[in-house]
Design a protein around this nucleic acid. Structure first.
Lengths: 213, 213
DNA sequence: CCCTTATCTGTATTGAGTATAAATATTGAT
DNA sequence: ATCAATATTTATACTCAATACAGATAAGGG
């Protein structure tokens, strides 16, 4: 995936970051987010306390570690998509493609089984999850408006983007709950996509007559 | 509105609470939420620091002070509504009624002009606003499911509730921005209701065939 | 081997929030 | 009015995240 960095400086920096991330993940999983202090993480990673904050400005950043990639991918999808297909449909197809090809969203339930539990137990993490959702909505809003040649703060773009992220959020949570109930990955995927489709129908209806449909 | 409480104890308690709330509102408005400390509020209200936390567990609670009423009203609307009219339509009509009769939502832009600015400047307040939105979505979800005789965690109810709150949130923000731009209350109301109507159309379409339509 | 710069680290401070226990005020009963 | 029970206010002390700042260490580029 990623190329090994040339210079030792960068290599060491990434190694330090990884050590902190690993230690944090292990401790959060074992004791829950709120019952682990930054000092304990620094100790476990054998690193000074300030080094932790150097790599992760907020404690939550050690938990949610893959934001930028998702943001950029959504931007790219909206920019490179077929102009014949509406943006909502484009994003719906994108979701289907992700699930079908990579299966990242569901595999990742399995990869860290306590992921959602850990979030559910921590008000801080829930707040951060909501913030990320809103940041993603802003990205989608901007992408939609740009594609339609509208103002960045266009009301319809904002409505469409927020309806979309609401849909994705509900789909994700419901799929996770399904997976937790019966460990059936296929069923969880089915729920995920069915809810995304259902939401997309609604958003298209709300946007009928606008370039966002 | 509210009856004067019989006993002195309650009267004093409410007076203390009000003094804290007033001092906080004044300071937040003057300096911004993050540049006011709880100690300063306690000082301004002539009250011990712990008394502040006694009445307002979190600093944000001094800013957002009217949550329970809204929650209960939404619950009541869903419970007492005409069974012939679908729940989404019921809530849409409720929004229209509130705007037409009380005009509380827009008057309150005017009553505290820096309200939205103060939120926009503070990451803490934005987080709390998002949490309140999600709490309200949970209330709506529960009301919808109850009315339809479904399980509390029903996927369709969750989707409908989250689409609804997304719509209301966008409508509110856009109405506020419109009001700020040209101080036209009627225009702001028009935008608010138009977006709520537009979102409602979408939600009904997404829920077609289910009891939530 | 020096110079510059990036990274790491310790110390100190701020500020929200919690725990605890003591002081004070209010009520209700005798 | 007095007394006991209870609610409210308050001070003290603590935890923890986050920021500011300054010094130490390590790496890169001549």
């Amino acid at each position: 995936m990623s190329i090994v960095p040339i210079d030792r400086r960068t290599r060491k920096r990434l190694a330090t970051r990884q050590a902190i991330s690993d230690a944090a993940a292990r401790l959060f999983d074992a004791h829950g987010f709120d019952r682990v202090t930054v000092d304990e993480i620094a100790e476990a990673a054998d690193v000074g306390r300030m080094t932790v904050f150097n790599h992760f400005p907020r404690k939550e950043d050690m938990f949610f570690d893959l934001d930028d990639a998702a943001r950029e991918q959504v931007r790219a999808v909206l920019r490179q998509s077929d102009p014949e297909i509406g943006p909502i449909e484009t994003l719906r197809l994108f979701a289907h493609q992700v699930v079908a090809e990579q299966r990242d969203y569901v595999r990742f339930f399995d990869a860290s089984p306590r992921f959602m539990q850990t979030i559910a137990e921590s008000e801080t993490l829930k707040a951060r999850a909501r913030a990320i959702r809103d940041e993603l909505a802003a990205v989608v809003q901007e992408g939609l408006a740009e594609r339609a040649g509208q103002d960045r703060s266009d009301a319809d773009a904002q409505l469409a983007a927020n309806l979309l992220l609401a849909t994705w959020g509900v789909a994700f949570v419901q799929a996770y709950q399904t997976f937790e109930r019966n460990r059936d990955e296929a069923e969880a995927q089915r729920i995920l996509l069915a809810l995304i489709d259902q939401g997309s129908i609604g958003i298209k209806a709300a946007m009928a007559g606008s370039p966002y449909a």
